[in-house]
Design a protein around this nucleic acid. Structure first.
Length: 259
DNA sequence: ATGGTCGGCAACCGA
């Protein structure tokens, strides 16, 4: 039996959140950590900080916005650095092969509001991600898709389902696309271990004291193919890093498998 | 009655 621990974290600036990330890595020693919204260009990526801790880094950054990375304990085989394949594409997709597991890390467009061009782009991006997975992966093989999907799937995944229904992040068109991943066979590993509601991974900065008031959303996911999901032993949300000086609006979401 | 968020990066955009 080989332990395989994976986590995902929307950093909202890796420069600002690097101390939190390093502390969490040291504490949990995951085999892979997927980061989103790193907001650094490749030339500024803190590779040395991770190497000094015995970790390896794959990343695709961009100026100002977006940016994704996969930090691994053992060297990983890099996969793709974009979904559509173009050099001008926003840095929202990165994949790798690690310990015989195919890993895809995504930062799904936020979408602003239904009816906007950006909302249409979000739906199109999710559709493209699903098509890519359907075309290139088999449900029988070990696959993990992690990241910030910017979609809450069920009413128990948001603090106010009635009030938020139909808005960005809790819209039936977004949920229908999430459903396609589940229909294909992927399993929401946190949900597998925690059937109850009220567990969130994101609290909007713009709502005063949202965390204290429990006004959260569960929009970050670790999705696993069936055979891999069957090997998960636990999944959890770590809110401890929110108690530091510079909390993020997201938390670390982690899962542990026995391969 | 009113103001109450972040981060990047240089004026606002994105979340």
């Amino acid at each position: 039996m080989v332990r395989f621990k994976i986590a995902t974290f929307n950093a909202n600036s890796l420069r600002v959140r690097l101390p939190i990330v390093k502390e969490w890595l040291a504490k949990e020693q995951p085999d892979a950590l997927c980061l989103q919204e790193i907001k650094v260009q490749d030339k500024d990526f803190p590779t040395e900080d991770f190497e000094a801790m015995g970790y390896h880094a794959l990343f695709r950054g961009q100026k100002s916005y977006n940016g994704v990375a996969i930090i691994t304990r053992r060297p990983a085989e890099s996969g793709r650095f974009s979904l559509y394949g173009g050099p001008l594409e926003e840095a929202r997709f990165i994949s790798a092969e690690i310990d015989a597991v195919s890993l895809i890390n995504v930062y799904v467009p936020q979408g602003v509001a239904p009816g906007t061009e950006k909302f249409a782009y979000k739906l199109e991006w999710l559709q493209e991600l699903f098509s890519y997975i359907e075309k290139n992966y088999k449900t029988s093989l070990p696959l993990l898709i992690t990241g910030d999907f910017n979609v809450a799937f069920e009413p128990i995944d948001v603090y106010d389902p009635e009030g938020l229904r139909g808005g960005v992040g809790f819209h039936p068109d977004e949920q229908a696309l999430m459903q396609r991943f589940f229909d294909w066979g992927l399993i929401d590993v946190f949900r597998k271990h925690e059937p109850g509601g009220g567990f969130y991974t994101f609290w909007d900065y713009r709502i005063p004291n949202a965390f204290r008031r429990k006004m959260g959303w569960r929009i970050d996911y670790i999705l696993a193919s069936p055979s891999l999901a069957a090997k998960s032993r636990r999944a959890w949300i770590d809110v401890e890093p929110r108690k530091v000086e510079k909390p993020s609006d997201h938390t670390f979401l982690a899962a542990e498998f026995e391969l």
